[in-house]
């Protein structure tokens, strides 16, 4: 009997398009329901009375999706967002600091994609948009103190596909401290790194640590595994006046990075 009931419930659940949590809830209740009904009738009578698994599933789903207001709410929100994107979107907070809005969000209309028009610029303490300029900026092109974008220029921190900044992190990173696929900077760490101090698969610099290296002071893992001590000694030799904690930090990074060896 148990197998017959479980098979029936399994078929009902398979016919349903509802979230997993609800499936478990329904399966549990159907199991108890059928077992209770089977105390007075045979399992065949009970299951026949309930109908085919597809019919039971349909009845459940009819009732579950009877109240579609949540679905309608979601569709309206999606529609609203789409409309906003189509017609552009701008939000500017009333609060200002030094004449700049605290938050400025500005996206171009999708119609502007086909018409040649200047890109709107979001300018604020926090700026978000196709082009964003702010202390904190997020956008296709982002300029500011802390920037995140496709192309980002951040005086302090910059993250992006192409990032320029004090500390730059990105596919292409250029900065005092640069991390990236291709990194250029005073200290550059990446797949290809170029800088005063360069660490990477290919490292070019005054100090070069990595796999393929070229520079005045070099350390390659082709010769021996790069240790913290060896990196420390190399950097200290190249820059004897460099603050000790910086040397330690850089040598730690050098030892942690796993350079591909041939």
């Amino acid at each position: 009997m148990v197998d017959r009931v479980e098979a029936y419930i399994g078929e009902v659940i398979n016919c349903m398009v509802v979230e997993d949590g609800l499936k478990h809830r329904i399966a549990s209740d159907l199991r108890t329901h059928i077992q209770t009904a089977c105390e007075t009738d045979s399992v065949e009578v009970v299951l026949n009375r309930m109908g085919s698994p597809a019919e039971v599933a349909k009845e459940f789903m009819d009732s579950i999706y009877e109240d579609k207001s949540e679905v309608i709410d979601r569709l309206i929100k999606q529609k609203t967002m789409t409309e906003r994107m189509m017609h552009g979107y701008e939000y500017k907070s009333r609060t200002t600091i030094l004449g700049l809005p605290l938050v400025h969000i500005r996206f171009r209309s999708r119609h502007d994609v086909v018409r040649i028009r200047p890109f709107p610029v979001a300018k604020g303490i926090i700026a978000i948009g196709d082009i964003a300029i702010g202390v904190v900026s997020v956008g296709g092109i982002a300029l500011g103190g802390f920037s995140l974008g496709g192309v980002s220029l951040g005086l302090l921190l910059s993250l992006g596909g192409c990032a320029l900044g004090g500390i730059a992190i990105g596919g292409l990173a250029i900065g005092l401290l640069a991390f990236g696929g291709a990194a250029m900077g005073l200290c550059a760490i990446g797949g290809v790194a170029m800088g005063e101090i360069a660490m990477g698969g290919v490292a070019l610099g005054n100090v070069a640590i990595g796999n393929e290296v070229d520079g005045n002071f070099i350390l390659s893992n082709k010769v021996a595994p790069i240790t913290k001590e060896a990196a420390y000694a190399l950097i200290k030799t190249a820059y004897p006046k460099l603050t000790d904690w910086i040397v330690r930090l850089l040598s730690s990074i050098a030892s942690l990075i796993s350079f591909r060896s041939n």
Partner: peptide, 12 residues
Amino acid sequence: MKEGSLYPVLYR
């Protein structure tokens, strides 16, 4: 009532 009509109401 069928089961499929009752239980969703109980859930709500």
